[in-house]
Computed example of a mutant assay.
Amino acid sequence: MRKFGVRWRLFTAPSILGLEGTGVMHNTTGRNALALPARGNSELRVGLSFAADHLDYDRRDRRQQEDLVAKHFAGAGWQVPRLLAAMREAEEFFFDSSGQVVMDSWSTGRTALLGDAAHCAAPTSGRGTSQALIGAYVLAGELAETPGHATAFAAYERHLRGYVERNQRHGRAAARWFLQPPTEPPVEVADDVVPLKHYA
């Protein structure tokens, strides 16, 4: 696992910002608050992320984790205090670090991995779903027309490895940009085109 030194708290909140059809993001150095309208603008999907290389906390203690988030966002301004208050009331809970799965091989024996299990590019890449779907298509196609699973697994990985590595570079660059003030130059968008073979 390649860690980015970024922690995320994701939750659903009432539509307290009055957003209609578009999301907003507030960046300060080392912190990012993101809010996206959902369910016909009746809810918010909120992400609070901050830079932290190492944190000591009990993974079963939600209150302790929320206190860590609140501490790192103290004085952040904008609508952050309202989002922190909504965080405390949210029914669901997700708090974790962000990173990438980097493996020398995506298969062993008769087992092959797909999607995030094989090559997570991180949420900041925006490529998780497309990598999983493209990978499933290629793997299924190679298994259907290549004699022997070992040969099919090798072809699947050979075909996708460059695409995945580009997406992972994008995920790393975007993670750095995500926690910078808005005066920083935007991250270069990755080339996400992979030449897909037609399988009969």
Rank of each mutant, 00 (worst) to 15 (best):
S98F: 05
V189H: 07
G109Y: 05
G77V: 01
Q180N: 04
F94C: 10
D56L: 05
L34R: 06
G30L: 14
A38P: 01
Q65S: 13
V46N: 04
R127N: 00
A38Y: 11
W177L: 09
L19Y: 00
V189R: 02
E188G: 07
A173R: 11
G47R: 02
Q79D: 14
A121P: 06
G30N: 12
V46L: 03
G162Y: 12
A38M: 12
L84C: 13
V138P: 00
M103L: 13
E43H: 12
V189K: 09
A76T: 07
A112F: 01
A13H: 05
A190N: 02
F73N: 03
A155R: 07
A112Y: 05
T129L: 03
R62K: 11
V138M: 03
G109R: 07
R60K: 11
L196D: 12
P186R: 13
P123G: 00
V189E: 13
V101S: 14
R110V: 08
L44I: 14
V193H: 12
E43S: 06
L48N: 04
G23E: 09
A13T: 15
S49D: 01
T22P: 00
F73S: 02
A140D: 02
S105H: 15
V102H: 12
R62L: 09
G47N: 06
E91N: 08
G47L: 08
F50M: 07
M25N: 08
H119W: 08
T108Y: 08
E89H: 02
E20Q: 10
D104Y: 09
R88H: 09
S130A: 02
E145A: 08
L44M: 14
L17F: 13
L160N: 09
W106V: 05
Q180F: 08
L19P: 01
G30Y: 09
S15P: 03
R127S: 00
N167C: 14
H54N: 06
F94V: 11
A112C: 12
A112M: 11
I134R: 03
A13G: 12
L10T: 01
F153G: 00
Q64G: 15
R127P: 00
L179A: 01
C120F: 00
P195M: 07
K197E: 07
S98Y: 06
M1Y: 02
G18Q: 05
V189N: 10
P123H: 04
G141S: 13
I16A: 06
L196Q: 09
A35I: 15
D67W: 07
R172L: 15
S107E: 03
G47C: 13
P185T: 11
A140M: 13
D56K: 03
T22E: 08
V187D: 00
E20I: 04
G30E: 07
D61C: 06
L19C: 02
N41H: 13
E89Q: 07
